[in-house]
Structures are given as structure tokens and as C-alpha cells.
């Protein structure tokens, strides 16, 4: 792994008494799609927010494109921000602005491009995501899927080299989920950005990622290719991977009239 685009070592974070991350490592090669898996509440989102600089980690080091990214270095941060986009779980669209203004915003704040060109580039991004005809509506007037596409348009309009996706498929039905993953992979190929995803949709993640990692108990339990993930006999990986099979067995047993002890690891 000679060309690490993002190299994360020993990220730790606690909120008061609540220790969320103990020491998380992640290696992201340039141009790849890396998916961080994990159960709900294991701190996946917090980890991603540490990467984006929204949450300041208590310890650990992040190297971006070979250079250390420290919270104190404002210039380095600003450069990172202009090369990186973040897709929020809740989309975080600004509801006081129109669709076009939302997409134009990152260009207005990170570049010195004249307004006319910003408008053109924003319209271009909307066209790519098939939202062009809704440019003067407000985000609240769009459907959930369109809002997700709008958020993606806003993320790619700056032509970022790194896009962080926080649970892009949360709360979507299986068809939409597929569509979102398709979209991510398609634009990842088209624009050539590096993508880090956080999700708990195992089958989709295994299909669409170059590498998967598993976060549990505040540490990264596993990182490798989907094939390695499927072959791994690490207990945490196995329980995550085989939960669908377990459910099938349990339901079958219940139907047969057997009594099952309540699971207490939820």
C-alpha cells in the first residue's frame, strides 16, 4: 500500500464519561472505496466526523496525502476542506436556500471563481444528478431520494478528491439503497474521487467497496478486501457477517416451538 491517501492512526474520542473511540486505525488508498461497517452506536459517525474535522479527536493522527492534518493548523485545514466533501446522514441541506444556491454554496466559500461561473458549475452538477429542472425550488419541497441526490450534487460540485459518506442509505428502502450505492460507485468512477463510507448495509457494502473495515468496541477489528472479509474467522466479523443466517436459524427454531434465550448483546 504505497500510496495512502488517508492514513489514520489511533483516533480516540470520549464525550464525558462515554468512551466512544479507543484507538481507531484506517488506511485509505488513493482512488478506492473504503467502507466502515459496524453496529449502530459503535461510533462510526463520530469517527467520520473526526476525519472531517467536525469533531476534534482526543488523540491520534490523521495524515492526508502524506501530510499530517492537525486541528491547530488552520491553513492545512482549509486546504483539506477545499479538497474534501462530507455527505451528512441527514443531508444537512440549508432549507432557507434554493436547490441551486445550496449547490453553489461550497464554491462560493472555498474558491474565488466569479459568480457567473459558479452558477454554471452548479447547474452542471445538478444536470449530472438529474435535478436541473428543480433548481429554484427549496430542499423541503423535494422527495427524500431527490434530497439525497442534491446532497451528493453539493458534495461533488467542488470536484473533491475525497468524499466522506455518513450512512448514505439510512432509512431508505432496498431499491433506493441499491440506487444510492450505484450512484456512489458511478460517480466515484466518473470523477475519480476517493470515498470513505460508513454504513451497516453489509451486502451492498461488500459488493461496491474495494475494502471494508469493521468498527467494534471503539477499535477497528478488521480491514481488508471483501473477499478477505468473507473468509475471515475473527469472531466479531463472523457474528456481523452471519447475523442473517443466525436469524434464520432462530426463527426456524421458534417456529418449531423451541424456547430461545433472549440475546443480550444488542
Amino acid at each position: 500500500m504505497g500510496d495512502l491517501f488517508l492514513d489514520v492512526r489511533g483516533i480516540a474520542k470520549r464525550f464525558g464519561e462515554n468512551v466512544v473511540l479507543v484507538g481507531v486505525d484506517l488506511a485509505v488508498p488513493r482512488g478506492s472505496v473504503v467502507t466502515v461497517l459496524g453496529k449502530s452506536g459503535t461510533g462510526k459517525s463520530v469517527f467520520l466526523k473526526c476525519l472531517a474535522g467536525i469533531v476534534r479527536p482526543d488523540a491520534g493522527e490523521i495524515r492526508f496525502d502524506g501530510r499530517p492534518l492537525n486541528a491547530g493548523d488552520a491553513e492545512c485545514r482549509a486546504e483539506f476542506r477545499s479538497r474534501c466533501s462530507y455527505l451528512f446522514q441527514s443531508n444537512a441541506l440549508l432549507d432557507s436556500l434554493t436547490v441551486l444556491e445550496n449547490v453553489a454554496l461550497p464554491l462560493e466559500s472555498t474558491t474565488q471563481i466569479p459568480n457567473r461561473e459558479i452558477r454554471e458549475r452548479a447547474l452542471e452538477a445538478l444536470r449530472q444528478l438529474d435535478l436541473e429542472k428543480h433548481w429554484d425550488r427549496h430542499p423541503g419541497q423535494l422527495s427524500g431520494g431527490m434530497q439525497k441526490r442534491l446532497a451528493l450534487a453539493r458534495a461533488i460540485v467542488t470536484r473533491p478528491e475525497l468524499v466522506l459518506f455518513d450512512e448514505p442509505t439510512a432509512g431508505l428502502d432496498p431499491l433506493r439503497r441499491n440506487a444510492v450505492f450505484q450512484m456512489i460507485v458511478k460517480y466515484q468512477r466518473q470523477f475519480g474521487f476517493t470515498a470513505v463510507l460508513v454504513t451497516h448495509d453489509l451486502p451492498e457494502a461488500l459488493v461496491s467497496s474495494d475494502q471494508v473495515a469493521l468498527l467494534d468496541g471503539g477499535r477497528m477489528r478488521f480491514q481488508g478486501t471483501p473477499a478477505q472479509f468473507n473468509a475471515s474467522d475473527d469472531p466479531t466479523v463472523r457474528s456481523f457477517r452471519d447475523s442473517a443466517g443466525e436469524l434464520r436459524d432462530t426463527v426456524a427454531a421458534l417456529r418449531r416451538g423451541e424456547t430461545i434465550e433472549n440475546r443480550n448483546d444488542l
Binding site: 466533501s85 441541506l93 462560493e108 472555498t110
Partner: peptide, 16 residues
């Protein structure tokens, strides 16, 4: 806006 992460979003977009 703070609650729905809009302010965080502005920050990640590099806006002041």
C-alpha cells in the same frame, strides 16, 4: 440549523 447539522455542513464546505 445546528440540530440538523446544517451549521456543521457549512463548516465542512469551508464557509465562514
Amino acid at each position: 440549523q445546528r440540530n440538523s447539522e446544517q451549521i456543521d455542513a457549512l463548516e465542512t464546505m469551508g464557509a465562514d
